[in-house]
Design a protein around this nucleic acid. Structure first.
Lengths: 110, 110
DNA sequence: TCGAGGGTTCTATTATATTAGAAATATGGA
DNA sequence: TCCATATTTCTAATATAATAGAACCCTCGA
């Protein structure tokens, strides 16, 4: 994942509405939810939710799944994982990690 | 970690200069680096680096460590871990995770 | 106490993002 | 075909962030 894409993803998540939508979809699972349902659950105007979903989609964090006149949106777990990996990789030059980045280590050790 | 703080952290990272600084400090380890050294390595004007370091500090992602007339900055690994945990927690309602979020699972299983 | 080095703050300019509301597109059923 | 539903696109107003440069503050050593 390139820097540009990473910044796009972080930027997309750095907003109350979009972070809320993303978390909703992460918890929801791969089936996703239709745009209208997302807007309703997050209490957003449809146009506004659509705008934010587009941003998330462009950042690769969610993907649209058309189904008749509904458009389902689902979290893109690969992007999420790439992002998390990028943020935490190579920490502490491999040295003092056991102290400083203990939780990271715990995650990384399988 | 509250939503406001999370958005602050994501927002702080969603910028080329700041992401670069943060990654530099994550790799550097808990001793950190002095502000001038950070500016030099990231090829930033001092005033500009100072501005971005302040943003990162306010977001809790780095912390200043004064040492004489130097100010060292070090990554705050706790915030990094909180952020990563928040983004990935409760995914897929605990159900289909083995397929969709495999890497997340791998990280979480100790 | 004075000067240099190391950082930060202030100001103004420019660029970018967010929001709401209206209009537009597309699908499926009567 | 026509209408209602589901969603997106457009437009304009408003708010927020990034940058450069100048001025400022603090610490150390002569």
């Amino acid at each position: 994942m390139e820097t540009k894409a990473l910044i796009g993803a972080l930027s997309a998540l750095a907003h109350e509405s979009r972070l809320g939508i993303f978390r909703l979809l992460v918890e929801q699972g791969p089936e996703g939810l239709p745009a209208g349902e997302i807007a309703a659950r997050r209490r957003l105007a449809n146009a506004n939710a659509s705008f934010h979903l587009k941003e998330l989609a462009q950042a690769g964090l969610v993907k649209p799944i058309p189904a008749g006149r509904f458009i389902y949106y689902a979290a893109n777990y690969k992007t999420m994982n790439d992002l998390v990996d990028y943020l935490t990789k190579n920490c502490c030059q491999g040295g003092v990690c056991d102290i400083a980045c203990a939780p990271v280590i715990k995650r990384k050790r399988k």
